[in-house]
Structures are given as structure tokens and as C-alpha cells.
Design a protein around this nucleic acid. Structure first.
Length: 481
RNA sequence: CGGGGCGUAGCUCAGCCCGGAUAGAGCGCACGGUUCGGGUCCGUGAGGCCGGCGGUUCAAAUCCGCCCGCCCCGACCA
């Protein structure tokens, strides 16, 4: 009978997710609780994410660097809110080389402190600014409840860190990078996101304010898919990062940080996946085109394989192509297998196709007969290029329609409670933490963000959905990962 | 850390209540053949310290105690 079917997304979304990750061989559980191994297919996806982001970071003037994994414990105590936020989830090295260390070392949960420390040595003059750095690396946060990709004790990410001479410049940078994330999410991952500002209670520990891109998963829960923080002078003061400005005055720098992690892979899975498994956005898919040859006997086998290999070479010039020439599994098995792995386009070639100088194209976003067409060898590359773009567009359209269909504007507190059971609520909010806390306590929904202007109603909000006092913001409340 | 559940083959599980001899099934894996346009079929085979430690007993996967680990729900979170 082969493999058991995946649980459907409808019946058990959480289990569907786990099974997809494991069976598509994106990742596996590591021997330590809460840690994961990213398998080659998952890592290839991450590498494509890295490329797409890194290119954007370079284009906006950033350089990559690498700061160490181990940070003196005392660094975390220099910024009050930062230590309060991160102390509970620090992993600490107390011994080295068989001896107890004089000062324990924290395994970085994020690198503001060590980078701040280094900057205090490097930055002397306004001519040294802006300092625009990024690092690709891993961090450790001792989370209590973990889930593959979404929340693991160790995760991979990029963290950008910048220092500026003025507040305005730093604020601009914070928003610029949020928009870079938005552009990446939409144009590479086909994930529609709502950019916005985090409330006081949801912002990063040590930030003046935090911006986020929020994405709706297939079960309507929200996922913070990327964040950008304006850190003000908090870390500059904590680490004494001062520069001599053009006016000969000694000033503290203004800093930012922004990050996007392997969690984003979880977003890709949960936004696009279907009951057959993964559906990867074409621009990030490790394999964009898989060729499945079909034959009956040895004569057909050699004929079809030869053509399949030619196609592989030809298409390989423009796309990431894989030829599945395994001869111990049937074509039907391969169809299911590659659908599970989310490959956007499948090229089937059998004896009939060879005779007619055509192939059968199957698009992953439309499983079954609906997504199948016949295409001539002539001009196949252009045909596939157009198909990949079309798949990207339709994934984005589908995800946007889904999100909009589940983004509601409840009028009453009770309605809010209803709506967040299966969607997001866009409501007026007075800005007080008590009201946020009450929604969380009553409905398990949190304040995801105060959406930017293009994502809020044109009119001003009237009353806070909770207390009825005059509203100061439009806010999105939702259950979240 | 509080509440609930579960640890037997790579995976999913049966056996445990009511102790008994070489511990089973399906899938997966290996080999041979067959098949190949939607998860082929048949045969042969490999694979287990029954989570760990201790106790009860002539005898423990099975009964008792302690420990460890995992999953789900809460508190915490990229």
C-alpha cells in the first residue's frame, strides 16, 4: 500500500504540520529536547532564503560579519529591559576545559550586547557612521514549548545591527528593513504580510519600538515572520557607544536591529501547504522542476531516459532541475513523493510524449488533472518560466484571499471573542496594556500589531473594543504561534 | 513548573488487566522476480537489553516502587 496518507489540514493542522516537516525531510528531531536537525532539503530551502535576503541587505548597503557565540554574562546586565527579557531563556556555560569559569558565558540569544561592546571600540567619529552590519548565525533561547522550525532551542537566522548618528536615520533604517522583509515575503515566498508596529507589551526587550510583519497561517493563527527594532540609545548608553559629531559634540549613537529566522520556513509550510504536503513558492524551492520519466520495458527505458537527460541539461541552464530516474519505484509513487516535497513543476515524459515531441507539465498548486497540460519541447523553457511565475502569482493571490476572508472587524467584545477563534480581528484599541491582557486572558488572542496605514481602515478608530474608552489605534488581535 | 497521556522492530501499534516456553502484525528496509501515464504485486530475508534501575516471584514486556524521556493542554516566547 505504500505510505499512509497525511492527516488532513482540516482534521489536525498541528499533526499535519509535523508530518509534512518530517516526511518531506526538511528537518528531524535532535537528541536534545527542543532541538532540530535541518536536513539537506530543508537547508537548501534556507540557503535560497538566505540568498534572496542577503542580496537585499547588500543592495541597501549592509556588510556581513560574524560575532562570537559566547558572551560574558555581565553584558546582559547592562541593559535593564534586555536582561529582564532574556534572562529566563539564557543557556549558560559554566565550565570550560574541565574548570569552572570565573565568569559564566551566555550562549547568545541575540547579539546586541556583544556587537554594542565592539562598536564602543570601533566607533569614534560621525565619519564611522552609519555602521551597517548583518550576521548569519545561530542563537539559543531556552524555550519551554518547542515546535519544529517555529520555536526551537537553537535556531538559525540573520540579525542585522546598525548604528546611526541621528534618531531620524535610525528610525528610517528600522522601517527600511521591515519593508525589505515585506518585499522578500511577498515577492520571493508569495506570503502576504501585514507590516505594523508592536505594542509596548509585545515589543523586543530593550527596544524603543518594534515593527513586525505578521502572516496568517493556514489555520488562521498569526505568525510573526520578521521583526525590526528601533533601539534608540538604550544599547548605546549601556555599552558606551559614543562618537564625536561634526559639531565637535560627543554623542551616543542610535541603533537598530532586525531579524528573520528559520521560523520563516514554518510560515512557508503553513501558508501554502495542502493535504498532499508541501507547496513551495517557486522562487525559493530547492527543486523548481522535477522530471519523472515513464517507461514499460528496457527499450522504452533507454529511449525515454535519454530524452529526460537531455531535458535535464537543457532546463538546468535556467532552473533548479532534478531528474528522478529511480527505477525501483513507480511513476505514481514519484508523483506523490514530489508533491509531498512541494516541487512547483513536474515534467512527465513517457513513450507517448517522446513520440509526439512533447512533455506533460503538472503544476503543484493545482494537484490532479486540473493542473496538467501538454507542452511541446520547442520553447519549453519559456513555457516553464511563465508557469513558475504564474504559480508564484496564484499562490500569493490564494494566500491573500484566504487572509482577507479571515480578517474581520468585530463591533463588540463578544464578537471579537468569536472572530479570533478562526481569524484575525481588526479593532479599535485604547492603547492600554490592561485591555490587551484582558483579551489574552479571555480569548487567548494577543495584539499582533498596529497595522501600517495601507492595512487599516481610512477612518479613525472610535472606541476601544474592550473598555469603550476613545480608541487611539487600530490593532490586530489574533491567536498566534 | 501544574494538569492529562504515552514509552514493545526504523515507523504505527497489538500483547500487559488475568505472569509461563523461540515476543507478534502492518508499513518501511534488503534481495529476486513482476510492474511502471497516480502511492504495483508475489516470494524470501534482516531487524528487539519490551525506556532505565530496583523489588516481588520457581518464572516479569506483563505485578509493585523509583527514575528518565516524549507528546498534548496552561504559564514564557523569533
Amino acid at each position: 500500500m505504500g505510505y499512509p496518507k497525511l492527516p488532513s489540514r482540516q482534521e489536525n493542522f498541528a499533526e499535519w504540520y509535523n508530518q509534512v516537516v518530517l516526511r518531506a525531510e526538511l528537518a528531524d528531531y535532535a537528541p536534545v529536547r527542543g532541538c532540530m536537525v535541518v536536513r539537506p532539503y530543508g537547508w537548501a530551502l534556507w540557503e535560497n532564503i538566505q540568498k534572496a535576503l542577503d542580496q537585499r541587505f547588500k543592495a541597501t548597503g549592509h556588510q556581513n560579519a560574524a560575532f562570537p557565540l559566547l558572551i560574558p554574562m555581565s553584558f546582559f546586565e547592562r541593559e535593564k529591559e534586555h536582561v529582564e527579557g532574556f534572562a529566563p531563556e539564557l543557556a549558560v556555560v559554566t565550565h570550560g576545559g574541565g574548570k569552572k569559569l570565573e565568569e559564566p558565558l551566555a550562549v547568545r540569544p541575540t547579539s546586541e550586547t556583544i556587537i554594542g561592546y565592539m562598536w564602543s571600540k570601533w566607533i569614534r567619529s560621525y565619519r564611522d557612521l552609519p555602521m551597517l552590519l548583518n550576521q548569519w548565525g545561530n542563537v539559543v533561547r531556552w524555550e519551554l514549548r518547542t515546535k519544529l522550525f517555529l520555536r526551537t532551542l537553537e535556531f538559525y537566522w540573520q540579525e542585522g545591527h546598525t548604528a546611526h548618528a541621528t534618531r531620524e536615520e535610525a528610525e528610517e533604517e528600522t522601517l527600511r528593513m521591515l519593508r525589505v522583509y515585506e518585499d522578500f515575503a511577498v515577492n520571493e515566498a508569495a506570503i502576504p504580510v501585514i507590516p505594523g508596529q508592536k505594542s509596548e507589551s509585545e515589543k523586543f526587550a530593550g527596544a524603543v519600538h518594534t515593527y513586525t510583519i505578521e502572516a496568517m497561517m493556514g489555520d488562521t493563527k498569526a505568525l510573526q515572520a520578521g521583526t525590526s527594532h528601533f533601539l534608540g540609545q538604550n544599547f548605546a548608553r549601556a555599552f558606551d557607544i559614543q562618537f564625536l559629531d561634526a559639531d565637535n559634540q560627543l554623542k551616543y549613537v542610535w541603533t537598530t536591529s532586525w531579524g528573520l529566522s528559520t521560523r520563516f520556513i514554518g510560515a512557508i509550510i503553513m501558508v501554502h501547504g495542502d493535504d498532499q504536503g508541501l507547496v513551495l513558492p517557486p522562487r525559493l524551492a530547492p527543486i523548481q522542476v522535477v522530471i519523472v520519466p515513464i517507461w514499460r520495458d528496457d527499450a522504452q527505458r533507454s529511449q525515454v531516459l535519454e530524452m529526460a537527460q537531455r531535458l535535464q541539461r537543457q532546463l538546468g541552464q535556467r532552473f533548479r532541475v532534478h531528474l528522478d530516474d529511480r527505477d525501483h519505484v513507480t511513476p505514481g509513487f514519484k508523483f506523490n513523493d514530489w508533491e509531498l516535497r512541494g516541487v512547483p513543476v513536474r515534467v512527465e515524459i513517457g513513450p507517448r510524449d517522446v513520440a509526439n515531441q512533447v512533455v506533460t507539465l503538472a503544476r503543484r498548486d493545482q494537484p490532479g488533472k486540473a493542473g496538467r497540460t501538454t507542452a511541446a519541447w520547442e520553447g519549453l523553457e519559456d513555457r516553464i518560466a511563465a508557469l513558475l511565475d504564474d504559480i508564484h502569482d496564484s499562490l500569493l493571490r490564494r494566500a491573500t484571499a484566504f487572509r482577507d476572508a479571515h480578517l474581520h472587524r468585530p463591533e463588540t467584545y463578544d464578537e471579537l471573542g468569536q472572530v479570533v477563534q478562526n481569524g484575525w480581528a481588526l479593532v479599535g484599541w485604547c492603547g492600554r496594556a490592561e485591555c490587551e491582557a484582558r483579551i489574552k486572558a479571555d480569548f487567548k488572542a494577543t495584539n499582533r500589531c498596529l497595522p501600517f496605514v495601507e492595512h487599516r481602515p481610512t477612518e479613525a478608530p472610535t472606541r476601544c473594543i474592550v473598555c469603550g474608552e476613545p480608541a487611539r489605534h487600530w490593532a490586530i488581535f489574533a491567536k498566534a504561534y
